[in-house]
Design a protein around this nucleic acid. Structure first.
Lengths: 335, 335
DNA sequence: ATTAGCACTCGTTCACATCGAGTGCCAAGC
DNA sequence: GCTTGGCACTCGATGTGAACGAGTGCTAAT
């Protein structure tokens, strides 16, 4: 267990390191944070903290740098200090009422998070396995194409152009849509099963092309279980920790492959509210130098997440404030 | 005017520089390209070429580097050598028949271009001012939302969720859609005007919310006149010229703001077929170290472009081959 | 006109000395 | 028994100068 003073030293190291980015030495600490104690005393404490795994020295006779453990402690103690009821995960309802629709709200929020945090904002909707059908439409475009339009219960809109060999009239398509829309509110997995048998029985000569349509639809729901938006990445260029092209690359490659990021979000804790994932705590190894701050909010079939991804050495306080402000703003906009 | 040999020297310099990335000296040239002539001779030619603005020296007593003028000459002479009928701009029709629809085809093509060129692939559809309406639909989602769905003549699909204060029934919306779809094939600007007056007259108490819908629609067509897809950017990390974080940043910032890129594409020549824009020839100053290779194909209301963006010092030959291959592939896939 | 030769330029590289922030440890002091 | 000042030591960072070498411009010989 840590003594009172050890904790004080440790948090000071983290704080100073976040501010300066330089390995911090005992002198600095003594002068700036713990004015009462001399450098030598602090040196002793730091040696102990290093033994416990909270600090590391890049090389002998250099200042110390916090480990992930230290960040964890720092962040936890910060989260504790926040007003407890700080807005948990109840914001999802606001999103639904946003004037630009769900998509617009998420795009807007992720961009705003980028701006305010000066890192990278992101927003995601995860369709949990129990995604429910909102509505399906088939819209004839020309003799060999129709647009397959799916609106999920949560408000997510998906569409895909379908190329069919035979000419389906708009009437046929509408009839089909009417019959399928009876299943609105059912879970997609159920809908698909029912639909499949149903179509073979009822639609005779069109069965083939309709099956194709359903396969398309299934593909949409399989492949796009998470819809993901990221705000501007431009800020990353100004982050000192990413001046090294290698670190930059690691983060970038994760952000570019939506799949990777989606996996990360899926793995993330089930509980709603604000959470922080620091460095190696991320399941994705590329993110070992990054931290992710997330607020998630769930309904039965979906989990919606807003968050920021940035360097491990980020200004956590400011980012959390930014996130809070965006959630606030969302509430305003949807009134 | 350039003498035969000057041209030979110049093209050799460009070729060597593209391969090695190093400033090229007279010795190398003499040994590797113009075996007949001595280094001293070539030195004289190079001095002349420098005076004419085709070459520059980073500093006295260093090898020479080609200017944009030199690249221009190099690329033009290469394009001339290509089989003349190399596939002009007639590929647009294939895209339409692609099994994944227009969007799918473009996403696929841009990704493929990234892979094959090892730079960044991109694909864009520009709705020229004369964009024509394909079809409009209004789909009721719940008591206060409907989805506004627009399909343009070219196959581009746009949608936006609209929040209306009053509850519109699906019947009302369908009736509205039916009336508007009469205007299919008209230019959007016309449609909008007619629609506006039309709605005020006919729809009485719903006029307000419908106007809102039209504003939304108009916003879509204003703001998304170009639909743009870029392939993976990951390759950029391996390009030697972008190891410098500054150069990387310049290109990245352009790629991230779709608007900038769109402007570039808009400005680009009207003629169909393959074209190359080198360094400072780009209207966007950030791209002074980059080149863009484009193949465009137009129909009446749209221009579709496929291309690659990379460093000025790129392997033009290979990229053009890659582009050609993708266009070829597209033809296959749509058969 | 071409080319070999030569002096000169200038960025690059490497070794070496210096500097300084910071540590670990010890002995003195409260 | 903590705490603290002092001191020797470590090790990366910084700076300097010499040696290097690729490449040029010019000139004189062919």
């Amino acid at each position: 267990m840590l003594t009172e003073r050890q904790l004080e030293v440790l948090l000071s190291v983290v704080h100073e390191f976040i501010e300066s980015g330089e390995k911090v030495g005992s002198r600095t600490l003594s002068k700036r944070y713990l004015k009462g104690r001399s450098a030598a005393t602090i040196r002793n404490e730091m040696a102990d903290l290093e033994e416990m795994g909270y600090l590391v020295q890049p090389h002998t006779s250099a200042g110390r740098v916090p480990t992930t453990m230290a960040y964890r402690l720092f962040v936890d103690s910060m989260l504790q200090r926040l007003p407890k009821n700080e807005r948990g995960g109840a914001w999802i309802s606001h999103l639904r009422k946003h004037r630009d629709g769900l998509r617009g709200a998420l795009v807007h929020a992720s961009e705003m998070l980028s701006q305010l945090s000066s890192y990278v904002g992101m927003a995601a909707v995860i369709q949990l396995k129990q995604a429910r059908l909102g509505r399906i439409d088939f819209i004839r475009v020309d003799s060999s194409h129709f647009l397959l339009l799916v609106i999920l219960d949560g408000g997510v809109v998906l569409h895909r152009m379908v190329n069919v060999p035979c000419d389906l009239s708009q009437d046929t398509l509408e009839a089909l849509a009417r019959k399928i829309n009876v299943l609105a509110g059912y879970q997609w997995s159920e809908v698909r099963e029912i639909l499949y048998s149903y179509i073979v029985n009822e639609l005779g000569k069109y069965a083939d092309s309709c099956k194709r349509a359903i396969d398309e639809l299934d593909a949409i729901l399989e492949s796009e279980q998470t819809t993901l938006y990221t705000g501007s990445l431009a800020n990353l260029f100004d982050v000192p920790d990413f001046q090294d092209i290698g670190h930059f690359r690691a983060l970038f490659s994760v952000l570019e492959q939506e799949g990777e990021l989606a996996k990360l979000l899926m793995n993330y804790g089930q509980k709603d509210g604000i959470g922080v994932i620091i460095g190696e705590e991320n399941t994705v190894p590329e993110l070992k130098n990054c931290s992710v701050i997330l607020s998630s909010s769930s309904t039965e079939g979906t989990r919606t997440m807003l968050g920021v991804i940035g360097p491990k050495r980020m200004n956590y306080e400011r980012v959390i404030a930014a996130l809070d402000r965006v959630l606030n703003d969302m509430e305003e906009t949807s009134k």
